[in-house]
Simulated assay, not measured.
Amino acid sequence: MTYDLMAQFLTEAEEQIVQAESSLAILRRHRGDAKALDACFRAFHTLKGSTGLFDLAPMERVLHAAEDLLSGLRRASADVTVDVTSLVETVDLVSRWLDTLRRTGALPAEAEQAATLECARLKAIAPHANGAKPALAGSGPPPGWQVPPEFEGRGGIAIRYVPRADSYFMGDDPVALMAAVPGLCAVKVSPRDAWGALDDYDPYSCNLVLEALST
Rank of each mutant, 00 (worst) to 15 (best):
A7E: 12
A13N: 04
E14S: 15
Q16F: 03
I17H: 05
A20P: 03
S22G: 15
L24M: 08
R29C: 07
K35Y: 10
L47W: 11
G49W: 04
G52A: 04
G52W: 00
L53Y: 13
L53N: 06
F54V: 09
F54Q: 01
D55E: 15
L56I: 09
P58V: 11
L63M: 11
E67F: 00
L69Y: 08
G72P: 01
G72V: 00
L73K: 05
R74D: 09
A78F: 13
D79R: 14
V80T: 15
T81R: 00
T81V: 07
T81H: 04
D83T: 09
T85W: 05
T85M: 07
L87V: 10
E89A: 15
D92E: 14
D92M: 09
S95F: 14
S95W: 13
R96N: 13
W97K: 09
T100D: 11
R102G: 02
R102Q: 09
T104A: 13
T104M: 12
A106W: 07
L107G: 04
A115H: 04
E118S: 12
C119D: 11
L122R: 10
I125C: 06
H128A: 12
H128K: 07
A129L: 01
N130Y: 08
G131S: 08
G131F: 08
G131P: 01
A132G: 06
A135S: 13
G138K: 08
S139M: 08
G140T: 05
P141C: 00
P142R: 11
P143Y: 07
G144D: 07
P148M: 13
P148T: 10
E150P: 03
E150V: 15
F151M: 08
G155R: 02
I157P: 00
I157Q: 02
P163V: 11
A165S: 12
D166M: 04
D166Q: 05
S167N: 06
Y168F: 13
F169R: 05
M170S: 10
A179D: 12
V181L: 04
G183I: 12
V189L: 12
S190F: 03
P191F: 02
R192D: 11
D193K: 13
W195L: 10
D202K: 14
P203G: 06
P203A: 05
Y204Q: 14
S205G: 07
L208G: 11
L210H: 05
L210F: 06
A212C: 09
L213P: 02
S214T: 07
S214W: 01
T215H: 05
